[in-house]
């Protein structure tokens, strides 16, 4: 067992992919000489050379599309799109092409590829660089979407993505790269579509993912000091989605709070909330509550940005009020 950061875990997964498969190559903006906007691919160009580590023009459509086409031709591309905000420029290739190819060709074509990208706010980057679109992609059959929240899952999920024969969107939260955690030396993986109970409790279930997991764990610790034991569930993958683990928990606790950084209207939290009431209605002692980002374009000011993103205090206050009902 050793300590790794999320950044190091992702890099480790990428090294494994590159070392185990000659047909695996990396492409993205400034991933080579520059080392990656978030330094995940630092050193890769030196080790693997320009054939396998490709600095791309700032042209997200052709980055994604070339990845799809090369996967069709027998390669295993791992793409970095610098932030999820920029994936909007590649969305046609992701949604209309990558996700549809196997299906529309009736299985004649496979598109094994990983598209890594960076989600979330909190970095002071304002409205166009602080969004959370992973839920949009999770809406699309044919895609897989994973959202690691810690170093262990970052590596374990990456290993499962490497084994996938279909396109995966691997979503990295911008504030998690330097978070450290225990990562076993021996091989393991984290299967796609399996959420995890990362804190046990019997009073209320908190369902969340990605950057909000640590916020919810902090809130759970505060609640514990006040005699409320929250169970915290990290979804890990948005598609395939494991709702069973959350349903089981809600059947035990009778209360559910869904926490996401994204906007509430049409957000992924609505999917979770609805699935929980469909499957655990008879066990609920109070309405399911969603805690989401404020419905505003992300403001730049530190004070405003902090107020727009859910924090532990907001989760704590909401749950305390819920328990008093």
């Amino acid at each position: 067992m050793g300590k790794l950061t999320v950044r190091e875990s992702i890099s480790k997964g990428l090294y494994e992919a590159m070392d185990s498969n000659e047909r695996c190559y990396l492409l993205g903006e400034d991933i080579g000489e520059y080392g990656g906007a978030y330094a995940v691919t630092k050193g890769f160009l030196d080790k693997y050379g320009e054939k396998r580590v490709r600095d791309m023009p700032i042209a997200e459509s052709v980055i994604a599309g070339a990845a799809v086409g090369s996967a069709m031709g027998g390669l295993f591309p791992i793409v970095e799109i610098m932030t999820i905000n920029f994936t909007l420029l590649a969305m046609d290739q992701i949604v209309n092409h990558a996700a549809k190819m196997r299906y529309m060709s009736n299985g004649q074509i496979q598109v094994p590829m990983i598209l890594r990208t960076v989600t979330g706010g909190g970095g002071g980057l304002a409205a166009t660089h602080s969004q959370n679109f992973e839920g949009w992609y999770a809406n699309v059959p044919g895609l897989k979407v994973v959202t690691p929240s810690n170093p262990y899952d970052a590596l374990g999920l990456m290993r499962s993505c490497i084994e996938s024969k279909d396109p995966v969107i691997y979503v990295e939260h911008c504030l998690l790269y330097s978070v450290t955690g225990d990562v076993p030396e021996e091989y393991y993986n984290v299967p796609l579509g399996k959420s995890v109970v990362c804190r046990e409790g019997q009073d209320v279930t908190i369902v969340t993912y990605g950057g909000m997991v640590s916020v919810c764990l902090e809130a759970a610790d505060k609640l514990s000091e006040q005699g409320i034991e929250a169970e915290v569930i990290d979804l890990r993958s948005l598609r395939p989605l494991d709702i069973e683990t959350s349903v089981k928990s809600v059947c035990k606790t009778g209360r559910a709070v869904v926490v996401e950084e994204n906007w509430k209207t049409g957000g992924f939290g609505a999917e979770i909330s609805s699935s929980l009431q469909e499957n655990a209605f008879d066990y609920l002692e109070s309405p399911i509550i969603r805690i989401s980002g404020e419905e505003v374009p992300m403001p730049y000011s530190r004070k405003l940005e902090s107020a727009a993103i859910p924090d532990a205090s907001k989760v704590t206050i909401t749950i305390k009020a819920m328990m008093e009902i």
């Binding site: 086409g69 090369s70 031709g73 027998g74 209309n96």
Partner: peptide
Amino acid sequence: IVGGQLPIAVGLATSIDYL
């Protein structure tokens, strides 16, 4: 999708070149 096949073609050509 008008034009969507062009990057796909470039990608296929990338695989030809790579292999």
